[in-house]
Write a protein that binds this DNA or RNA. Structure first.
Lengths: 147, 147
DNA sequence: GCTTGACTTAGACTTAACTCTAAATGCTAT
DNA sequence: ATAGCATTTAGAGTTAAGTCTAAGTCAAGC
């Protein structure tokens, strides 16, 4: 039950370069090597890569992920630090999700606007659709012109 | 109705350095200068910075934002490109939001786990709460160990 | 009229996170 | 047994996006 670096790369969506880089940085401790000196990635290693992806994807730096790893290796005395870390990560993530909701509203408005503009062939869509002004003000704020 | 670079920085959440950098890169064309040579940011400029923030926050590179700006300046002949750009950006954003939902589930599970572990003082929480195994499998996949 | 603080410029430096190069090693199929 | 391919290493290079430095200008307050 072991994967080469190439297989692990495919499973994780990272490049072999990146996996070696992560190991060099101490984010992948205890990667086994076979008799020929090749890395052997276990299912545990792949799972850990997925946890890294989650933390990285919610805005954590590799440096802080390393800190988490150190806490993991330190054992039960660091349970509270780890709990707190995940609670903070959750708050960050909530903020990020709210932001993305706002961006989605803006983008949807732009799509609506450009769809009409594409039909007309020009950008004077507020003349024929004055109700869009209301929506623009709600989504972009009162004074925002359209760019 | 004009802002200095410092005021514009506060309004946009970017540093004066970054604003000058954006101008140098061509992302802020036509910033006025007063008689003393100081930049004068208009409300339009601030609004454009907020649009940049939206595009950047949904994963667009400054280079591609510049492309959008070029289309804006090119006029009505590029309406379809712009529409397509926002449609693609929306698809990217949807994927990103789904990812964040998954990350949220993982983090929530970790918080649940570590909250119990913190009460017990150790990580053997599956013994006293075997129902967590089900949830772990759902959230992390079947073979995933807990890290 | 002098100091203070925000601004100006060109250009150098920083940081995070990869990404690649070169030379060597070692399975695998013909 | 040799060609082809993935792997290894150390270390150099790249990229995006800022961030800062130094030397100078300018308006405002004391």
């Amino acid at each position: 039950m072991g994967y080469t670096i190439g297989q692990a790369a495919k499973k994780s969506g990272l490049s072999p370069y990146t996996l070696r880089f992560y190991e060099k940085e101490g984010l992948l401790p205890n990667i086994r090597k076979n008799s020929a000196g090749l890395r052997v990635f276990s299912q545990d290693d792949i799972s850990w890569l997925q946890m890294i992806e989650c933390l990285k994807g919610t805005g954590m730096s590799l440096k802080n992920i390393k800190q988490y790893l150190a806490w993991l290796n330190a054992g039960n005395t660091t349970i509270n630090q780890r709990l707190q870390m995940f609670q903070e990560q959750k708050e960050k993530l909530k903020v990020q999700m709210q932001l993305l909701d706002k961006y989605m509203e803006k983008i949807n408005f732009k799509i609506k606007l450009y769809t009409l503009a594409a039909q007309k062939g020009d950008m004077d869509v507020y003349k024929s659709h004055p109700e869009l002004e209301q929506e623009r003000e709600r989504v972009f704020g009162v004074d925002n012109p359209v760019r």
